[in-house]
Write a protein that binds this DNA or RNA. Structure first.
Lengths: 346, 346
DNA sequence: GTTAGCACTCAGAATAAATGAGTGCTAATA
DNA sequence: TATTAGCACTCATTTATTCTGAGTGCTAAC
């Protein structure tokens, strides 16, 4: 795309800004009055014709105003967006209270998603941070009542899983201790790939009569590691999508909301975000998004990082006609906050 | 409401059944052909006029067919519904595979909700079973690394909570053991109301230098008990609501879906269901539901019970024009299955 | 008690006309 | 050469109008 003149840029910006506000195609007359360029609508029309030829704006139909194309949004996002405004600052203060003193990661992430959705009026998602390769840190066994052993499995990133294992008859304390020592000596520091059939065999032999109990605990361990390995994604405000009728018919919206419920789509999105080398905020406009069904939507994502290198993603999903300014600065703020919170406590 | 003649009942049944199928007002001619009564449309019309006067059916407008009123649905549900059909049996078999071998309650309940929503095409919810008064069963403390104590708290119903407590410096093994014994001796069997300020004081004194660690664990315990006390509700298929356009405009649907996301409304519903003395399946038609915003919806709920008396609720939320037959028998089946599964393992 | 017949009603579909926002182009102007 | 006023033209949307047909209630005959 060729270089745009200062004036064309200003006009483009005005078009996009106005369209974001109203959702209606923007006419030349509006621009003529709206901007401080002091140009007549006719002049604007000429410029708009050029912009259209260059592919930054388009007409939904002959006698309508112009709306931005994906390329137009792109220029707007890349070059024309101003830094944060007061509104965002206000919201930051609102958030303050909400985010403090929540000390369980899950609760906190859910909360963040909620706040984000509420603040922006778009759909929000947040993916929990995940380490590269999960290792077992620690296993603890206890008889919790006469017929159940409780296995507490701690893996990297202090993700903790409990597994209740039914047994026919109670084990004596020292038996439990033995089993516990056995498992820890083999499994501490092991990742999923380390736990091979040979290791399992050896352990079983050493466990003697408790081989099957061990077996069940082991499958618990595997499950725990897998679960820690599975990226948790929390969402909120999916229904906000309904607020933007331009997304299309009920059919489409329905598919989208279902996708949101299933989270499969979001997973892809998160992976893509993390894999891309870009740091910080990423904006996907319409078809730029790495997933299907996003034609009429935009996605803004941000990456945050824990001290140990585990990374997570926050994202906003909304109509292409999204208040990018607000969303981007909100996300920026939020990642900073998240970084602070996590790296303070962790 | 007066007693209806056999024939009127048959006609009412035909109207409801037909309306459930098509969603369109049902005319006299349709009934005349649809049923095996061998009556002309004119006769049907006379009967329909009577039924309308009695308040079982109504006309959306003068020249339209009839649709059932809430009272009409009620009669249908109470008297006219036949027992389970083949379709349901098929689904039961489908479910078989899905439900076996899931051994964590949460995962399982989520799964049930999903399957239910998928099977019925309505929105499904399931509330986890809850005991009357939660008591602490067991607390276990471990140093998980140099700066964290892991507290595993087991409460009634084998609900397990983990709490990671940061400490300035590592505690020796026997210190941890001491703390552990201290806490267990005080807290085992205690419910939330039992943990009073006096008990806390005594414990703190005995904990000596570790008073503040104990304090933090205690707040973990309280949180755990509270969390176990809080009824978890899982939902699925909320977006199915979008499939039934008669629910109303986007506005209404949106409110409803939001309510679903928030779950507050569902909570009320569950409480109501459990408090009502009725056993088994309950059907709320339209305004009968104990919550707001349900004018155009029906709710079918079922209660299931664990061996220890903890009760949970499964529910289906859909349009008034719901396939009650299918829903009721599906729920019936499902409660039986749930009872089996839970009471086998528990 | 049941039914055929008929006039009547009325929501929704189909069609037509009116509106107006916005355009592109041309010719005049600075 | 860049800007602007003016004007004819386009077309989505709105509003008004007519058409259609499913369904009714009532009456009179069976």
């Amino acid at each position: 795309m060729e270089q745009l003149s200062e004036r064309k840029l200003k006009i483009l910006q005005a078009i996009v800004a106005n369209y974001l506000e109203t959702g209606e195609p923007v006419g030349s007359r509006t621009i003529s009055k709206y901007t401080d360029l002091n140009l007549s609508s006719a002049t604007i029309r000429n410029e708009m014709a050029d912009l259209e030829e260059s592919g930054y704006i388009e007409q939904p139909h002959t006698s309508a105003g112009r709306i931005p194309t994906d390329a137009g949004y792109r220029v707007y996002v890349d070059q024309l967006m101003q830094e944060r405004d007061n509104e965002v600052e206000e919201m930051r203060q609102e958030r303050e209270g909400l985010l403090e003193r929540v000390d369980r990661m899950e609760v906190m992430l859910k909360q963040v998603a909620k706040v984000l959705a509420y603040n922006t009026n778009y759909a929000a998602m947040i993916a929990a941070p995940k380490n590269q390769e999960i290792r077992v840190k620690f296993i603890q066994l206890t008889m919790v009542d006469d017929s159940h052993i409780l296995a507490v499995i701690v893996v990297d990133g202090n993700v903790i899983k409990n597994q209740l294992i039914p047994v026919e008859e109670p084990l004596a304390n020292d038996e439990v201790l033995k089993l516990s020592i056995l498992m820890n000596s083999f499994l501490q520091g092991a990742s999923l790939t380390d736990i091979n059939i040979e290791m399992i065999q050896t352990m079983k032999v050493q466990a003697g009569v408790y081989a099957d109990v061990l077996d069940r605990i082991l499958s618990g361990v595997v499950e725990a590691v897998k679960a820690a390995d599975e990226r948790q994604i929390y969402t909120s405000g999916a229904t906000n999508i309904l607020k933007y009728p331009e997304i299309g018919d009920v059919e489409k919206t329905s598919i989208l909301l279902e996708a949101f419920e299933e989270k499969q789509m979001l997973n892809e999105l998160v992976e893509e975000t993390l894999n891309s080398n870009e740091k910080g905020i990423q904006v996907y406009i319409g078809n730029e998004a790495p997933t299907q069904n996003m034609k009429d939507l935009s996605v803004v994502t941000a990456t945050y990082e824990l001290q140990d290198g585990a990374k997570g993603t926050i994202g906003i999903i909304g109509p292409k006609r999204m208040d990018y300014k607000k969303v981007v600065s909100t996300l920026k703020e939020l990642t900073v906050e998240l970084d602070e919170i996590f790296n303070k406590k962790d």
